[in-house]
Each structure stands twice: as C-alpha cells, then as structure tokens.
Design a binder for these strands. Sequence first.
DNA 1: CACCTTTTTTACCAAATGGTAAAAGTACGA
DNA 2: TCGTACTTTTACCATTTGGTAAAAAAGGTG
Lengths: 208, 208
Amino acid sequence: MAQIGTDEVETKPSRIQLRNRRKILDAALEVFSAHGFRGATLDQIARAAGLSKPNILYYFAGKEEIHVTLLTALMDTWLAPMREIDPDGEPLEELLRYVKRKLEMSRAYPRESRLFANEILQGAPMIGEGLKADLKPLVDRTAQLIERWASEGRLKPVDGRHLIFSIWATTQHYADFDAQVQVLMSGRDVHGDAVSFLDTLYRRMLAV
Amino acid sequence: MAQIGTDEVETKPSRIQLRNRRKILDAALEVFSAHGFRGATLDQIARAAGLSKPNILYYFAGKEEIHVTLLTALMDTWLAPMREIDPDGEPLEELLRYVKRKLEMSRAYPRESRLFANEILQGAPMIGEGLKADLKPLVDRTAQLIERWASEGRLKPVDGRHLIFSIWATTQHYADFDAQVQVLMSGRDVHGDAVSFLDTLYRRMLAV
DNA sequence: CACCTTTTTTACCAAATGGTAAAAGTACGA
DNA sequence: TCGTACTTTTACCATTTGGTAAAAAAGGTG
C-alpha cells in the first residue's frame, strides 16, 4: 500500500513511488495552472503524466489532495525570497534585491505563480489556513522591519504592508497576466525592461 | 423568438427580455467571478437569477455566450478611466487621477475585476481578439503620451507601458487578491491606506 | 524459482452538467 | 375576448468527470 493514512506506519517511499509522484505533481502543476482547479480534469493530468487515471488515484487520494500538495509545497519556495531579507543589511539594497528575486521567480516559474493566483482569486479555499499560519507572521515581521528602517531615516516613510503588496502585484503581474502583456508588448524584451523599470520605481519610492 | 441570430431582423427587446437578461447577467457576474468560467455552473447562475435553467437558455445560446457578453460589456467600462486621461492636462495630476480612479473601480467593482483576472489567467481564450482590437491601440497611444510628457521634462523619465502595467497591477491587486489582503490586513482600513500609498508611490516615481 | 508485495490495467459507476424538445402558461394588441 | 407571439416549465438526454473494485502484471527477495 502506497498511500499513507493517519494510522499507518510511515515507510520509505520506493523509487517507483518517488518517480511517479513527481511525474504526477509536475503534470498537475501544468494542468492546474493553465485551467484552474475546477477547469482541470484528472484525465488531463493523467495524460500529461503518462499514467492512467486509476494509477494517479493509487498515488493520491483524490484531485483535491494533488492540488493541496502542490500548494503547500509551493508556499515555502514562494516565501523564501522574503525570508532572505537581511535585517542587518543596507535597507534599499535588501528591498531592491527582493524585488529582483520576485521578478525573476515570476519569469522562471510562471506556472507556480498562476497556480497561486488562481487559488487566491477563488478565495483561497484550500490554503486559507496556511496563509494565516505561514504568510501572516512573515509579512508582519517584514512590514515592521521596513517601517523601522524608515523611522531610522534609512528609507523614505512608507507603509510596509502596502509596499509588500505593491511588490507582489508588480512582479507577479508579468506571469499572471502574461496573455495581456504579450498582446501589448509584441516583440519587446519584456523581462529586461521590467527589471529596470521596477528597480527605478522602488528606488525613487524608497531612496532617501 | 427572443434570440437574435445572424440572419434575423433585430427587433426591440421587450420589457421582460430586458429585465431577465439583466438578472441573468448580474447573477452570472456573481457566479463567474467567484468560481471562474469552468467552475461556474448554469444551475448556480439560474438559482442566483431566480430562473430555471432552460429559461436561462432561452435568453442566451449557451454558457459561453453569457460569459462573452459579460466580458465585452466589461471591457468598455474598464478602459474608460484610461480614455479620460487628458493629453492637455497637467501630466502628474492626470496620472495620479487615473491611479485613483482605477483603485476606486477595484473597490467598487471587485467582481468585474476578478472576472477579468480569471479570463486573462486562463490565457484570454474568449477576449484575446478584443484585447488586440480595443486595448492595444489605447495602450499604445497612452504610453506614447506618457513618454512624450517625460521627454518634455514634465515627468521623470519612465517606460510608459511598464508604468501602465504597474498601475493595473497595484490597483487590481486589492480586488483580485482580496482573500490574501484580508488575512494580512485584518481590521485595518485597507482602501484608505491604499489610496495614500499609491499616491505616494506614483508621486515619487513621476514628479520632476 | 517461488512467493508475497507493490504497481498497473480493465471495466465499471453514480453524480453533475450543458443542453434540448415540446407542452403549458402568459401577455397583449386587434 | 380571441388569437398569436412570447415566456416558462416539465421531462428528458448525452457526455464528462471523479472515483472504485478487482483482476492482472511486475518487482523484489528469500
């Protein structure tokens, strides 16, 4: 039995299990991020993973479990850049580096960004609790840090939380609204220009 | 016959037709914006509209037609603020007013914002052409105007298109990611603070 | 190789869902 | 008020979809 229930002794997953679970999650990321949770079907995921539908359900208890697994794993990766803001670093540099890394993640992992955007758009039905437990403390702490920096005169005065929102919004926009961006930027070097635009935006906003 | 086919003579819609079409579109906006196109069902829409499912299909040819009708009607409203930027006005004032109006629309019409976000996230399958036809010319023109203002020294140098993206992203964020914003801003006056934050952000970005 | 466990396939199913046909009911002008 | 056109309901239907049972196949180990 591969599935791990609440009462069962957790045994090491075999090589086959690791390989197939990874294939399923990768396929599911592709399908969920393109069509949303309700728009995605197990058949699509199965086809993308190169497995049969019942075989998928041998590894995961159901469609929702696949989605939740993806989201919780994603949460960590997604928050990593914010965790790496150094309270002892130079404030402006730290924040501009954060912006750059978020933008780079948007470019490198657009599927993950869209998966997350879809979930939040629907009201975060599956990770609402995760937001409260993981995201909120980190944001509270970072917002406080930013405002302390500002009060020490090392940044212009700024609302920490809204600054964070604006950084998320402007960086993720390039992944989440890519269909629109592509129409409006046909042929241009979107990413390169975005890097320097956002650097300018937040430099003018924050530099004392 | 209420449905208007390509070959039919267009006759004036009766009072009943107007009332019911409006009820259906309002219900559909509610349901589509909350669950996305695929996540919404005709039964949900029918229930929200207080009509039976076949009755809905008497007024609209199908689920997709309802969605397309909503999106095309929305497009106009959505672009109105950008159309109202006055080329002969004071540049900074015009742009700050645009930001304010976009933010106000996010607050007053979150369902519309989410409907749009959902569609773009899925790759704009239904209004891709509308984007090219309506949105692109307007954005091209506005971006040019902004860059002319900048070259005349009335704004700091700025990439017009990326400025527009950032305005869209930061303002719509409050509607589209409301579930997240609520978790992180429990109890605060989100809108009021957002207004002054964005005013500051774009003032520092653009004021010469 | 023989045996037991893990993995995969085949054949299903029940519910949900978009949609239709046609009868019944309603509004309204002549 | 009669007749016609418009509107609504009832009773369906075909497909899709998430999920299951159980047999078959494949792995691995003594």
